[in-house]
Design a protein around this nucleic acid. Structure first.
Lengths: 234, 234
DNA sequence: CAATACGGTTTATGTTATACACAGTCAGGT
DNA sequence: ACCTGACTGTGTATAACATAAACCGTATTG
């Protein structure tokens, strides 16, 4: 028999405590943590049931006592990696609060870059992930935005973080060469077909310069939210 | 022998035309198109070399004459699915132009939802993908933004589209139940832990209502870009 | 015409998730 | 204090997958 608990049950700790047979030597949390460590070190693809089990000196199959399958394990990994959302210590309005929140999220994603890959598939939401949502939606109360819009605004910020991390991980990888080089070279060859990009590149768009896409985008979104709020009746 | 062309060579059509042996019965484009059809119909995971080859009545191995491996095939699929970027027919400034561009991109992603999964890994950029970038950066020329910022702004929009599609594909999938239901149910059980979210939900955040996260976010970002431009010296 | 490069196939290998049945082990009622 | 049965971890097996290597016929080129 394998675990019958759904991913949702596991995430929300609804495991029926069975007290009959031998005591389990592992726990779902332990397994998830080990998997996260592997993913942090060598990427999501290298997280196999085998490797996780090896960490404990167990066989791959033994993990199926705790987790229904690999997909559910990954869902657990995400919630484990996110951890509970940090509290925000700036009470001066929604703007600095969201700025700080976004930077916190950015840090987490930088520590666990594989999360961007893992979160692309449909998956259940765990308590930690929900806590992040909660902390971001809270400061937007009383801004005149509807509940739906408050959530949408937060989704916007999350998307920015995801996208930024991905870009940093190197959107282009042609034999290990960095995006900047690969793209600039390609652009040089096809300058006629991509005049606007070429012009942007010439003014230093892809250089390793002081450009910080994350901060630029963050302020941009915050400006946009502010503008949207401003045109709302209070 | 297999194909020695790199993904970049394939994408940019740098295939050395060999005229020696028998004529190829397939083409890289045909293969990519077939793979895209499979992914559209049944998801990226079901795109195996076997299934693609079956479409032509060939063996899986025959594909390796055209494509170095599965990763390169996926890169080709992305560029094929994107297609060449549509031209923008509104010359009234960058705002409507970018709005239209983003909606176009949104449509493409809706037609090929698997692209969001595929683009999470490091990959080479193809001519079509670059054409999309080009069309979006162009209207931002002369806005006072630096080249780097122009690209950052476009990346922002792309991230929004990606994120939105993903959300639509159902961030939560607990046995086929939709995000709205699953989340609202979870929230009800833990209302005390997530007060702000509960409040937002009560005001209709997750209902199937008239809320359109895509349009909200889009206007938000455009507002933000406008605000950023406004505080630039001309 | 002969050499050779090339397209497609056959066969094989290593990796993966996972199904299934078995053996040891421990809790709980008697 | 015992059984007894539920539950845990293991061994073995299977199927799907990507891909490597060797092979064979064919069509082009010298």
């Amino acid at each position: 028999m394998k675990t019958e608990a759904s991913a949702m049950d596991l995430l929300w700790g609804r495991s029926a405590r069975r007290s009959r047979g031998p005591r389990p030597l592992l726990s779902v949390a332990q397994i998830a943590e080990a998997a996260v460590e592997i993913a942090d070190a060598e990427g999501l693809a290298t997280v196999t049931m085998q490797r996780v089990a090896d960490r404990f000196g167990f066989t791959a199959m033994s993990l199926y006592r705790y987790v229904p399958g690999r997909a559910e394990l990954i869902a657990l990994m995400i919630d484990t990696a996110l951890g509970v959302a940090p509290s925000i210590d700036t009470p001066q309005g929604w703007r600095p609060a969201l700025r700080q929140w976004t930077r916190h999220l950015y840090d987490v994603f930088r520590r666990h870059p594989w999360v961007t890959q893992a979160t692309t598939q449909a998956r259940p939401i765990g308590p930690n992930e929900l806590s992040w949502l909660e902390r971001a939606v809270a400061p937007l109360a009383g801004t005149g935005l509807t509940g739906a819009e408050r959530v949408d605004a937060v989704v916007l910020l999350t998307g920015h973080v995801r996208n930024q991390i991905q870009a940093e991980m190197g959107i282009a990888a042609d034999g290990g060469v960095h995006l900047a080089v690969a793209l600039t070279e390609t652009l040089r060859e096809h300058a006629a077909d991509y005049p606007a990009l070429t012009e942007a590149a010439d003014s230093g768009a892809f250089g390793p310069g002081d450009n910080d896409g994350f901060e630029f985008g963050l302020e941009c979104i915050l400006n946009g939210i502010a503008a949207t709020i401003a045109m709302r009746p209070r």
